Amino acid sequence: MKKTQLARQLLEQVSRWLPHKPVEVVADCAYSCREVLRHLPPGVVFVGAMRADSTLHRPRTRPCRSPATGRLLTKDILLPKPEKIARDDKHPWLSMTLTLYGATTQVQYKELVARWYRSAGKLLLKIVLVKVPRGELSLRVFFCTDLSRTARQVIEDHGSRWGIEVLFRDLKQLLGFASSRARSPLAVLRTAPWVGVCYTLLVLWYMELGWDTSRMGLPLRPWCRTKHTVSFADILRLAQRTLASVDWVDPRLLLARLPQPTSRPRPRAA
């Protein structure tokens, strides 16, 4: 089964779990496809990305006849591709300041409402073109199935998925989620929740410590001299150093080192 088919089944399952709750899905180009977009459950808002050479159409707002045959035209109007719209000086670039990846960024953009028949069918999409000053791609094209969303919301929502991408990267490369040896059905079902619980406990443990970054002993990398924040790899390294000094042979000594909970005074009876 393809990953896009699994994504479609996952959306349908979540929609059944939350029948009266709004659900928002943020995905990259790989999942912004026909298999997912044409089978979105009701109440699901999809924010994704498309190629700069995608074919777009605009619905007709008034009846029009063909000048050659006189027949009534019913097909949508073919629009220029996003890469051509970006070069069109008739539609100037707009500018705004927003927060992306934790930093304030100045963004130039264009927006329109159109249909993307190849993947989304007749569904109207809010499409936002963003000029990229650096990188391999000079233009990024994002879209949203909710036409009431502003361009700021579409761009920031798509940027918010980066934290989820980093989470899966850490689960696979640092906690061994990608190299699990589980074979039985129950073991496979337990692996992902268990790895997620371990990740959550480690992050909460570090937040409970409240350590300053200078006390972490962050490694000095010649290729990254501007690192001032703590990553999950640093938290995992700190946990490994902490657990390495613990005496696991005698459980009583281990329990004796744990901080004792403070007892709260019981209220007196009247």
Rank of each mutant, 00 (worst) to 15 (best):
K75Y: 07
I77D: 06
L78E: 10
L78Q: 07
P80G: 02
K81Q: 08
P82E: 01
E83T: 07
E83M: 12
E83H: 13
K84C: 12
A86K: 02
R87Y: 09
R87P: 11
H91Q: 11
W93Q: 02
L94A: 08
L98W: 09
T99Y: 12
Y101E: 08
A103D: 15
T104S: 09
T105V: 15
Q106V: 13
V107P: 02
Q108H: 14
Y109K: 04
Y109H: 08
K110E: 01
V113R: 06
V113G: 05
V113D: 12
R118V: 10
R118G: 14
R118W: 07
S119I: 04
G121V: 00
K122S: 08
K122Q: 05
K122E: 08
L124C: 01
K126I: 02
V128Y: 04
K131G: 05
G135F: 05
E136F: 04
E136K: 09
S138Q: 13
R140Y: 14
R140K: 09
V141C: 08
C144I: 03
R149L: 10
R149K: 05
A151L: 01
R152A: 06
R152Y: 03
Q153H: 08
H158M: 07
G159W: 05
G159K: 02
S160R: 02
W162P: 07
G163L: 14
F168E: 09
R169C: 09
D170P: 03
L174H: 14
L175P: 02
F177V: 10
F177L: 15
A178K: 00
S184I: 09
P185L: 13
V188C: 14
R190D: 08
R190I: 06
A192S: 13
W194L: 08
C198P: 02
Y199Q: 11
